[in-house]
């Protein structure tokens, strides 16, 4: 549950801290800086004005210049020594853990390194760390980034999810980390559509001087639009395996089984997930998902020589 009080308190301290360093500041600039409305900044300053040290006498209160306040400018005249508090263990773990994860996936922006250094200097180590994942080639990374910066297309040697090797010219838009793996969002000239390509499946990338023709779309390029709803019943002990499916609802059916309902955007991907927990499955609906599951299972058994 969102803790609004804590968020507001953090901002109140932030405003005092910012004003102490930067001096008189228009409400509009504070609003932009802290990502809230100008009206909220005004309310925050009014709250700070009646806040202060225990005792709560006039001399104990945080004070602002009243004349400038009426002109929409916050000017702190007495902070009472109040300042922003340092990062909590959870905050530091969230930021540093995420940056390590992006970096391990091979898709952290260049400025991540200096951010990590500053955070480490402020809080020391954190209790969240990251396993290395499949490597992304440095030369691929730098060609893609150069393409994004200069707005030029790149020729990729790519191995798709069905393991087919293709050469394609793409217009690179964005690097995205989804569940620990890095992807390139791009316009693919071969498919004439937006595509999301796994970075570790790009064998090589060659720059071109051809300018981009299709700008990035606003929304994430990867499709989470569901094609149909699936209902899967499985043994209760394997419940964990479906708990992280996007948009899943899980109902207990009694002591033995649970039923999970979720949207299927990519039947092949969902079938792969179900295959990994197949011994615990009791039933799978609809028939289209059963077909996708059976196709995949037959392929595996044929390869094993069964």
């Amino acid at each position: 549950m969102a803790d609004r009080t804590l968020g507001r308190l953090t901002r109140l301290l932030g405003i005092v801290h910012y004003l102490e360093i930067h001096g008189a500041t228009p409400f509009t600039e504070l609003a932009d800086h802290f990502g809230v409305s100008e009206r909220q900044v005004r309310a925050d300053v009014e709250t700070l004005w009646v806040s202060g040290l225990p005792g709560h006498q006039y001399d104990d209160l945080i004070d602002f210049d009243g004349f400038l306040f009426d002109q929409g400018i916050a000017d702190l005249t007495n902070s009472q020594g109040v300042s922003q508090v340092s990062f909590s263990a959870r905050e530091a773990a969230a930021l540093m853990g995420a940056l390590s994860a992006l970096s391990a996936a091979g898709a952290a922006p260049a400025a991540s390194a200096s951010v990590m250094e500053k955070l480490r200097g402020a809080v020391g180590g954190v209790s969240v760390d990251v396993s290395a994942s499949s490597p992304v080639r440095d030369e691929v990374r730098s060609v893609l980034e150069a393409g994004m910066v200069t707005g030029t297309a790149v020729i990729l040697d790519y191995v798709d999810a069905q393991d087919r090797r293709t050469e394609r010219t793409v217009e690179p838009h964005r690097l995205v980390v989804i569940d620990g793996a890095a992807y390139l969002e791009c316009w693919c000239r071969r498919a004439e559509d937006h595509r999301t390509l796994r970075l570790d499946r790009i064998a090589s990338a060659v720059p071109t001087t051809s300018e981009v023709t299709h700008p990035p779309v606003d929304t994430h390029g990867f499709s989470l639009t569901q094609r149909y709803a699936a209902t899967v019943t499985l043994e209760r002990a394997a419940r964990w395996a479906v708990e992280d499916l996007p948009g899943v609802t899980i109902m207990a059916d009694g002591d033995e089984t649970v039923t999970a309902t979720f949207g299927v955007a990519n039947p092949g991907w969902t079938a792969g997930r179900l295959l990994a927990i197949a011994p615990h499955l009791v039933s799978v609906e609809p028939a289209a998902l059963r077909t996708a599951l059976a196709d995949r299972a037959r392929g595996v058994l044929a390869a094993q020589g069964d």
Binding site: L275, L281, V282, S283, V284, A294, D306
Partner: peptide, 14 residues
């Protein structure tokens, strides 16, 4: 690998 694929086929029969 075998037991997972077989179990999947079994369930997929519906």
């Amino acid at each position: 690998v075998r037991s997972h694929a077989r179990a999947a086929l079994e369930v997929a029969r519906g």
